[in-house]
Amino acid sequence: MVSQLSREERIALVEWINPELPITTQADLLGLNRSSLYYKPVAPSPEEIALKHRIDEIYTVHPYYGSRRITAQLRREGFLVNRKAVQRHMREMGFAAISPGPNLSKRRQDHLVYPYLLRGVVIQQPNQVWGIDITYIRMLKGWLYLTAVLDWYSRYVVSWELSDTLAVDFVCAAVGQALSLAKTDHE
């Protein structure tokens, strides 16, 4: 029963004021790490948000800039930042410089070639083919990540979820919601 609940639902079951059952025992019974119960995420500072927004702006104009060039540009603009911090922020935002890789025209013989499964498929009805995409939305105080499940026939958004982290849970929730909606449509 407990294993079927999501992590958030199990956390909600913790009774903080219970003299009979200590938090340690409750965490063990619910399959939670006790130290994670006390963790409160810290919001990013205004300076970090301003830095990330500026990195986003620079990368949007110059997608071929790597962490070195972005760091140099930020320093010219008066930001006190080192390259490792810029690399970390770029990695968190999913940015990588666009550049050619080595021997891109040569195919590796040991590399598995996956077939395009929709080649020749004519999409004629709703819920025949779905696509999923994850993107980020820039907010005043940070980012939100959006997962959307789209119906390719009607371009209808079947389901979507927002999260402030790139954890797998919200992606699975969007897919689960889409599948449950499709199941109710067929019944």
Rank of each mutant, 00 (worst) to 15 (best):
V86G: 15
P22D: 14
R76A: 08
Y156M: 13
P115T: 01
D133T: 08
Y153T: 01
F95G: 00
E92L: 13
N18S: 11
P44W: 06
V158Y: 00
V175W: 13
R69Y: 04
R108E: 00
V2H: 03
L104R: 11
P126K: 07
K106T: 13
K183V: 08
Y65N: 12
L104Q: 09
D169E: 14
G101W: 02
Y65G: 04
P102Y: 06
L179V: 04
D56G: 10
R107L: 11
V81N: 03
A148C: 10
H89C: 15
R88Q: 15
D169H: 10
R54K: 06
V158E: 01
R68S: 15
I98T: 15
R138Q: 14
S180E: 06
E161K: 12
Q87N: 09
I134F: 01
P46C: 04
I23N: 09
A174W: 00
H53R: 14
L30T: 04
L29K: 08
F95N: 00
Y59F: 14
Y153N: 12
T165V: 06
I137C: 14
W143N: 08
I49Q: 01
E15C: 13
V14G: 00
L51V: 13
L104E: 08
N103K: 14
V61M: 02
G94K: 02
E77S: 06
A43F: 01
W130C: 02
R88P: 09
E92D: 14
I23H: 05
T25D: 08
S35E: 07
N33D: 11
T24W: 03
G131Q: 06
R91S: 15
L13S: 07
F95C: 05
I17T: 14
P22V: 11
G131V: 04
N82C: 14
E161V: 10
M93D: 12
Y156K: 12
L21C: 10
D151P: 03
Q128N: 08
V81W: 03
A148F: 02
I49A: 00
K106F: 13
Q4V: 05
T147L: 00
M90C: 00
L13G: 04
I132H: 00
P46H: 04
S3I: 07
I17F: 10
A43R: 10
V42T: 10
Q124M: 07
N82V: 14
L74R: 01
M139F: 06
T135N: 09
E20A: 11
S36D: 03
